[in-house]
């Protein structure tokens, strides 16, 4: 028995994997689950800064596989989310410092200690991605409503299938309802049509994300943020709850109305 390992992946870089890992991790920990978040992006460590834990990193993933420390020693407990622990990546190393087998060993060790192990995958389809995905039970594929990101998501879904990782769902990040109304952004249905994959989250574009990352305080800790609610909803769906989709449509109506008012005004 033990916990469930979830890889957060995308293919394309910059679509929000690390932000998703940090926020879904904290949201799960707020539901009283014990959570470990693992930064598998060796050489480009970032999960620590997004979580605000960069000053407390002592040991890392590579230290564990090289025997310099134990798994427990390398884990950093979050100050505010006390059920959340970070396993940082090494910064001064490259992706070949860890093998698939070593990654599986570390992840299964963590699964004994935690309810959920979230693995933040590096961008790309090479060894780093494979290492991150290989120990996972479930995959969350993050995309944005842009052609490049959706195409890469399709590729990643194909690779996950070929690795036997059939349990995967999609998170569509950075939706801009006002652009969807104008017909200038792929909407949720378009993306689902193209990728034919189960949906687990829709997250609106939110400038607060940049502010929260500046501070190192994940946005789920801010009660008023719509993006924060979206990440909490993803955590609830992971826990098996049937959560209605956020009503971006109401905002769309407002957007449309606002736009008509703008037009009359000019």
């Amino acid at each position: 028995m033990g916990g469930i390992a979830i890889v957060i992946t995308s293919g394309k870089g910059g679509v929000g994997k690390t932000t998703t890992t940090a926020n879904v991790g904290i949201a799960l920990s707020m539901k009283n689950k014990r959570v470990a978040v693992v930064d598998a992006d060796i050489g480009l460590r970032n999960l620590d800064v997004v979580l605000g834990l960069e000053n407390r990193v002592v040991y890392n993933l590579v230290d564990i596989v090289e025997g310099a420390c134990g798994v427990k020693q390398a884990l950093i407990r979050h100050k505010r989310a006390e059920n959340l622990y970070l396993l940082p990546a090494a910064q001064a190393r490259t992706k070949d410092a860890v093998t698939s087998e070593q990654m599986v060993t570390v992840v299964s060790e963590l699964k004994k200690m935690f309810d959920f192990v979230l693995i933040d995958s590096p961008a790309g389809i090479e060894a780093g991605f494979r290492n991150a995905a290989t120990g996972a039970d479930i995959a969350l594929v993050v995309t944005t409503p842009e052609v490049s990101a959706v195409r890469d998501a399709d590729r990643i879904i194909g690779l996950l299938d070929s690795m036997g990782k059939k349990e995967h769902s999609l998170i569509i990040n950075r939706i801009r309802p006002e652009m969807v109304v104008e017909g200038n952004m792929l909407d949720v249905r378009d993306v689902i049509d193209i990728l034919s994959i189960k949906l687990i989250g829709i997250v609106p574009e939110d400038p607060e994300i940049i502010i929260s990352t500046n501070k190192g305080e994940p946005i789920v800790m801010d009660d008023n943020s719509l993006a924060g609610k979206a990440f909490i909803n993803i955590a609830r769906r992971i826990l098996g709850e049937n959560v209605p989709w956020l009503k971006l449509e109401e905002r769309r109506k407002k957007g449309l109305f606002g736009w008509i008012k703008d037009m009359w005004g000019k």
């Binding site: 195409r151 399709d154 104008e182 017909g183 200038n184 792929l186 449309l256 037009m263």
Partner: peptide, 30 residues
């Protein structure tokens, strides 16, 4: 142009172009 797009007349919206291009690209990829 915006108004025409919203009323569904005139040319394709950029999202429709995106969807068509993606469909074709993914088929070629596979």
């Amino acid at each position: 142009k915006k108004l025409r797009t919203m009323l569904g007349i005139g040319g394709k919206s950029s999202k429709e172009i995106a969807k068509d291009r993606l469909r074709v690209a993914l088929v070629y990829d596979k």
